[in-house]
Design a protein around this nucleic acid. Structure first.
Lengths: 125, 125
DNA sequence: ATACGTTAGGAATTAAGGTTCATATCAGTG
DNA sequence: CACTGATATGAACCTTAATTCCTAACGTAT
């Protein structure tokens, strides 16, 4: 049977975080916000989105407000009142933005996972 | 003359953060700590390192302490007193660790910059 | 023996974000 | 027309991390 090879680095993990920002560095979209937007898209409300993401409504609302300020265009359209109490849905720009982010994120992840695997393999020697 | 093409995403930047951690997720090395270690290596003291990195000595000291606790082996060796008041230098393990990090970081960056460029180019269309 | 500059580390303070709270607004429904 | 549930937003509160503050220990040089 094979002996598991032990090295000083055997318990090391590589992590990364990816996000979009404006040129001035203000954060726009990261994984959390991207998931929040998807949850909103799926459920039609900011409240549902924040519940799913397990963050406060206040934060979700504030985050999106800031994002739109920075971007300079609207990615969601919100309405209060009505049948459901209120609704929020993504604008065309919003949909495009997360679509771009999703594609990019996937490519990024593929590329990065490859080199991480390569690196970890080398660590074993 | 060429008109600069303007798009909704023209002012978007891609950012990423990379770090090593233990399997339990505790942070070990990120860019700041890696630079701190290099500064220590270069100047022979934790104090000099923290000054260069513009963080408090207390934080640098605490960070390294935590890192070594998590790793389970020493990456620096510290001595107080003496000619310079005290010295700190990297152990062989410490040198290996940052060497690995540096190599990995460079590869990571190359791979990632490539796909970021590709992505930004696509955004323009 | 005193001075100097660094390591060592507990304790208090400050800063930054997020959460909670409170209150208002809105539009469809019973 | 009261009721409901979501959006809107300031303000107070909480949590966690980092900075500042202090005091001590150490070893070489003067």
């Amino acid at each position: 049977m094979e002996e598991k090879k032990y090295t000083k680095y055997s318990n090391i993990r590589i992590n990364y975080k990816l996000w979009m920002s404006s040129e001035t560095g203000d954060a726009i979209i990261d994984d959390d916000k991207w998931q929040l937007l998807i949850a909103i898209q799926k459920h039609g409300s900011l409240k549902a989105g924040s519940d799913i993401m397990e963050i406060s409504y206040r934060k979700a609302w504030g985050d999106l407000k800031k994002i739109e300020e920075i971007l300079g265009f609207n990615i969601i359209e919100k309405h209060r009142g009505g049948k459901a109490g209120g609704v929020t849905y993504l604008t065309e720009d919003g949909n495009k933005l997360i679509q771009n982010y999703i594609e990019f994120r996937a490519e990024f992840q593929d590329a990065v996972d490859l080199i991480i695997r390569k690196f970890k393999k080398r660590l074993k020697d």
